[in-house]
C-alpha cells in the first residue's frame, strides 16, 4: 500500500503548490479526473483476487475522498484569494468628487409663490389664474375704482387701448371668480402684473397674489387668523402680524398688515428701519359695492381680500436689495436658491 501513501502525499504537495484555480483543476484531473491516477487504481480491480476486492475498493474510495477534500479545501482558499485580489483591484478613492448630476432650481419668486399657495391650499383655497391683459371693467370699475379715479393715471398703468390694459394688480381675479362661482369662495389669484415704474425697488413687471374669501359671517378676526397662519409658514413660527388702518377702494375697512421683522425679530434693525415691523400686504373686508357688482348679495355674504407683492416677500426673505436682480437671468444668481 506504499503506492497509496505515495499518491496521497503527491496529491497533497501538488495541490498546495498550485496558485490558480485553473492549475488546481489540472492537478485535480491528474489525480481524480476520468483518467486520473487514483481513478486508474480502480481499473486495477480486475487483477485483484476476488476476496480482496472489497477492501481494495474501499481503500481506493477512501483515498479518493481524502484527496478530494484536499482539493476542495485548496479551491476554497484560492477562491477566497481571488476575490480578495479582485476587490483590491476594484478599490476606489472614496474621497474623489462624485459624478455630478447637476440639478437646476426654481426661481426665487416661484419658490415664494409656491410656499404661499401651499400654505393657503391647506386652508381650502383654490388657485385661479386670470388673464394678464384685461379690461378696464375688471381692473378698475368692478373694484369700485370708477373712471377718473387718481389710481388710474396713465403714468401708473400700461394701456393697450382705452379699454384694454395690462393688469396693474391681481385683483381682477376676485371679480372673475365671484362672477362664476357661488359662495363659499376661497381662492388665490397669483400672477404677473404691470406698472410703469422702474428703479431699484420697482419693476415694470412684478408678481402679486390676491386672496379672497366670500362666505356667511366672515370678519376682520378671520382675516387676522388667516394672515397669522400664513406668515408663520412663510417666515417663521414666532412671526406676528399687526393691522393698521388704511384705504383701498375695494375693501372697507382696509388694513395694512405688518409682520415682525424677520431679521431682528422686532428689536429694530436696518431692514425694518428700526421699527421692528415690516409692511408686507394690504387687506380688508370686501367693499359691499364690489360684492354687489359681481352678483353676490352683501346682506347675506361678506368677503375678505388680501393682496401681496411676491417680490417684496422674496426680497425680505432672501435679503435681495435690488429688484432688477430677479429678472436678469444670471445663472450664478439663480443657482443659490432651494432646488424647488
Amino acid at each position: 500500500m506504499q503506492e497509496f501513501d505515495e499518491l496521497r502525499k503527491q496529491a497533497k504537495t501538488e495541490a498546495e503548490n498550485t496558485v490558480s484555480l485553473g492549475a488546481l483543476n489540472d492537478v485535480r484531473a491528474k489525480f481524480i479526473g476520468k483518467n486520473g491516477e487514483i481513478t486508474a487504481l480502480l481499473r486495477q480491480m480486475k487483477d485483484i483476487p476476488f476476496e480482496e476486492r472489497a477492501s481494495f475498493g474501499k481503500k481506493v474510495n477512501d483515498l479518493k475522498e481524502e484527496v478530494s477534500a484536499i482539493f476542495e479545501k485548496k479551491e476554497r482558499e484560492l477562491k477566497e484569494k481571488e476575490r480578495e485580489d479582485r476587490f483590491k483591484k476594484e478599490a476606489v478613492d472614496i474621497t474623489l468628487p462624485g459624478n455630478a448630476v447637476k440639478v437646476g432650481g426654481a426661481h426665487p419668486l416661484n419658490i415664494v409663490k409656491n410656499k404661499i399657495i401651499d400654505a393657503f391650499c391647506g386652508l381650502g383655497f383654490e388657485v385661479f389664474e386670470g388673464p394678464e391683459i384685461d379690461s378696464d371693467y375688471y381692473c378698475f370699475q368692478a373694484l369700485n375704482i370708477p373712471k377718473d379715479h387718481p389710481a388710474r393715471d396713465m403714468q401708473d398703468t400700461f394701456y393697450i387701448n382705452d379699454n384694454i390694459l395690462l393688469r396693474p394688480h391681481t385683483s381682477p381675479g376676485q371679480v372673475r371668480t365671484m362672477e362664476n362661482k357661488k359662495p363659499p369662495i376661497k381662492i388665490l389669484s397669483p400672477g404677473r402684473v404691470y406698472r410703469a415704474d422702474d428703479d431699484a425697488s420697482h419693476s415694470p413687471m412684478f408678481h402679486q397674489i390676491e386672496g379672497l374669501v366670500v362666505d356667511k359671517g366672515v370678519s376682520l378676526c378671520d382675516l387676522k387668523g388667516l394672515l397669522d397662519t400664513f406668515v408663520k409658514l412663510i417666515f417663521d413660527e414666532d412671526t406676528k402680524t399687526r393691522f393698521r388702518p388704511s384705504y383701498f377702494p375695494f375693501t372697507e375697512p382696509s388694513v395694512e398688515v405688518d409682520v415682525t421683522c424677520c431679521k431682528c425679530h422686532g428689536k429694530g434693525c436696518g431692514l425694518c428701519k428700526n421699527t421692528g415691523w415690516i409692511e408686507i400686504l394690504g387687506a380688508g373686508v370686501v367693499n359691499k359695492n364690489v360684492l354687489k357688482m359681481s352678483g353676490i348679495d352683501p346682506e347675506v355674504y361678506s368677503g375678505l381680500a388680501f393682496g401681496l407683492g411676491i417680490e417684496r416677500i422674496a426680497m425680505i426673505k432672501y435679503g435681495i436689495s435690488d429688484i432688477r436682480t430677479l429678472f436678469e437671468s444670471n445663472v450664478r444668481f439663480l443657482e443659490q436658491f432651494d432646488r424647488r
Binding site: I117, F120, R244, P245, V255
Partner: peptide
Amino acid sequence: GYDNITPTLLKTSAITAGGRN
C-alpha cells in the same frame, strides 16, 4: 384699537377642498 382683533380661522365658513387643479 386693532390690537383687539383676535385671530379666528373662518369659524362660520363652510369647508372647501382647495388645492391646485
